[in-house]
Design a protein around this nucleic acid. Structure first.
Lengths: 208, 208
DNA sequence: ACGGTTTTTGACCAATTGGACAGGAAAATG
DNA sequence: CATTTTCCTGTCCAATTGGTCAAAAACCGT
């Protein structure tokens, strides 16, 4: 028995095509949302025929779910990397910077999740109250300990995390609005400003 | 000429019906988004027939636009009420509290705007770079003056406003996520916590 | 009570769209 | 090569859905 993979080995071409489709779908879903996206648009973006897309994923919904799943881990990584060992303030500032950079570099993923959650997270509920909650609780406990030890100001750690999510993702999800107000600023300047602002804000707020 | 209204006087029944439809539409749009909402669902929520809804608004799109327009002013009011005359820190904290309360009391409106902007604000672009930008610039100038006078910490006023939007609306727009993490907390407790946290955060950050 | 206007709806239509299907092209397999 | 398996697409279909239309019902001024 040389075949060690449990259900079925995926061929190279299968992996590649699925990858292409997921990327095209991300493009389309992030702009139009689940309902606004059509198989046709996805197929066009992936440069293949509509039945071909269905051939690989079975249904539009399956693509959408596939996308969410394939991105969830990436999405949580910055928080996961927040280490209990490091310097409290530095750890949190690094987390903020990582999250902000992620928003800058992966705005499509950010919008995908935002839309999903905004609409009640019908396909992600379990992950939210399972994996996500566990991770947040764990890191919130770390932050709470830091506060107790006097290394950080006493601020509700859960809400601290929420506010970091809110602010960093704001720049990706509502970029149209931000850009309309700060009209003419290019993306890099904008994120540099945001970085400086958030660093400043949280240094002032978190210092013991 | 007793009729003084420019184009046409709207009858009582017309105003009422339009009101009912807008309210039903808000319910449906805020949950499903523009594309996910159907005339049928709106009609059902308004307890009338589909052609009746069309009779009053002409098209689904017109209802959507009507909603956005009828809510925009309400949405901007808290910022508009931020007064250059008051005590700087108190004014900003009051603004935050108003905005947060608004998110709590009008989550449907919040989600409506969030979805619209998330999808590129195709129907709101002008308002964003016109009315909204002007208002923000005006209030940002006020805040900048306060900072210059040493009454407030020096923080980029535009980004300060963005961060307030981001955090307050987060609790309305992503309530599913917040609730999944803080599982079991009822709405009032949650918003009270948020209020306490945000007040605390911004007092620490804004004190000169 | 009556004629006209406004309101309301059932029935219908055309466009869109998710997806099925049959069969051809290409690749792997032997 | 022959055959089997995988890949790929043109064509079609049924469901959904935004919107029309004609006609009925309710309303209103006189």
């Amino acid at each position: 028995m040389t075949d060690q993979s449990p259900p079925r080995k995926q061929t190279r071409i299968q992996r590649e095509k699925r990858e292409v489709i997921l990327n095209a779908a991300l493009e389309v879903f992030s702009v139009h949302g689940l309902r606004g996206a059509t198989l046709e648009k996805i197929a066009a973006a992936a440069e293949m025929s509509k039945p071909h897309v269905v051939y690989y994923f079975g249904s539009k919904d399956a693509i959408y779910k596939g996308l969410l799943e394939s991105q969830l881990e990436t999405w949580l990584r910055p928080l996961r990397e927040l280490s209990a060992e490091g310097d409290p303030l530095a750890e949190i500032l690094t987390y903020i910077r990582r999250k902000l950079r992620m928003s800058q570099e992966m705005p499509r993923e950010s919008k995908l999740f935002a839309t999903e959650i905004l609409h009640g997270a019908p396909r992600t509920r379990d992950a939210l109250s399972g994996e996500l909650k566990d991770l947040v609780d764990e890191k919130a406990a770390v932050i709470a300990r830091w506060s107790d030890e006097g290394k950080l100001a006493k601020l509700d750690p859960h809400h601290l995390i929420f506010s970091i999510w809110a602010m960093t993702q704001h720049y990706a999800d509502f970029d149209v609005q931000v850009r309309a107000v700060l009209n003419g600023k290019d993306s890099n300047t904008l994120f540099d400003e945001a970085d400086a602002y958030l660093t400043d804000l949280f240094i002032r707020a978190l210092r013991p």
